[in-house]
């Protein structure tokens, strides 16, 4: 009995994962083959075929080819929405580390009913993108069109904006997030060879293994927009120096972002670094008349421009 429920559960979870994958491929306009599904879900070819058969029997995919039916798409979008909303929830409302979000959401998405998802949506203020930059389907199932291309398709010297960072595998994702690259960073590709890429942003350079270029989706800058060489991170401001705040990166989110906004960390605010803890963090910044201490990780997410005293 217990054994049975477990097999049924895992079968349902498998179906949900498969549907989510199909919906993602449809959105990315990628071809799906029985092999790619089996690989994604780490199944043997035979198991993969059985799964596809089950999907067809349940009329979730079309009988002839691997394409979602109307009801299949509806179900798939629900799972996708549950996953992305839950990741948004984890990012905004909890202290879990970014590298944990995907795993936790993968576990939780199956337990959320449609009502739960609606409630979560409301509680989060109806977000439109998850923390990785993926769109969250609206209640009518709409999603904005896919934009951008992988960073790997661009040459050295190219300048553009990051719009999406793939959260798998976790070790690459955590390296990207450690460098405080976010889904609104303007970057320049400084170097690319067979081993590594070097990215320039906000006055700093970061080197990554080459695979990282496959994980970052970028778009061209809007007309008139350019990479501003004078923009830096607040963490680089020496004690006694003055700067103007340009904005906060999208990595600063939820409660923390609202707190900092309310404290006056808004574009145009003039700030002076006043006090530094001997260990380098936190640093006290004069912001709108008060001295506010920020830790290094927080100051990394605030963009500034140096101004004359």
């Amino acid at each position: 009995m217990c054994q049975d429920t477990q097999t049924i559960m895992s079968e349902q979870i498998q179906i949900q994962h498969a549907l989510k994958f199909l919906a993602e491929c449809e959105y990315e306009r990628q071809e799906v083959t029985p092999e790619s599904i089996a690989a994604k879900l780490t199944l043997s070819p035979a198991e993969g075929a059985a799964l596809l058969h089950n999907l067809q029997v349940a009329e979730l995919i079309e009988p002839e080819r691997i394409r979602l039916t109307e009801s299949g798409r509806d179900y798939a979008l629900h799972v996708l929405k549950a996953h992305r909303l839950y990741e948004t929830y984890l990012a905004k409302k909890t202290g879990h580390h970014a590298s944990q979000w995907h795993k936790l959401a993968d576990e939780r998405e199956h337990e959320l009913s449609r009502q739960d998802v609606e409630k979560l949506d409301e509680e989060l203020g109806y977000p439109r993108f998850d923390p990785h930059g993926d769109p969250i389907p609206s209640s009518t199932g709409e999603m904005p069109n896919k934009r951008g291309a992988l960073l790997s398709t661009y040459p050295v010297g190219w300048v553009g904006r990051v719009i999406h960072i793939e959260d798998e595998p976790a070790h690459l994702y955590s390296r990207i997030s450690q460098a405080s690259i976010s889904t609104d960073s303007i970057i320049r590709l400084e170097k690319k060879d067979s081993l590594e890429i070097v990215l320039y942003l906000e006055g700093e350079r970061f080197s990554f293994p080459l695979e990282v270029a496959e994980k970052i989706t970028v778009v061209e800058l809007d007309a008139g927009e350019q990479l501003d060489e004078t923009v830096q991170r607040l963490s680089r401001l020496p004690i006694g120096a003055q700067a103007q705040i340009v904005g906060m990166s999208s990595l600063c989110r939820g409660l923390e972002r609202n707190r900092l906004l309310d404290l006056g960390v808004v574009p145009g605010t003039i700030t002076v670094a006043e006090l530094m803890n001997p260990s380098g963090s936190p640093v006290g910044y004069r912001i709108r008349g008060a001295c506010i201490a920020l830790r290094k990780e927080q100051a990394d997410r605030i963009r500034i421009r140096n101004v004359e005293q």
């Binding site: 909890t94 202290g95 409660l255 707190r259 936190p282 008060a290 001295c291 506010i292």
Partner: peptide
């Protein structure tokens, strides 16, 4: 146990 609790840092030096 407290891994998932929300966390922010603000310290005003009055």
């Amino acid at each position: 146990v407290l891994k998932g609790e929300a966390s922010t840092f603000t310290l005003e030096l009055p």
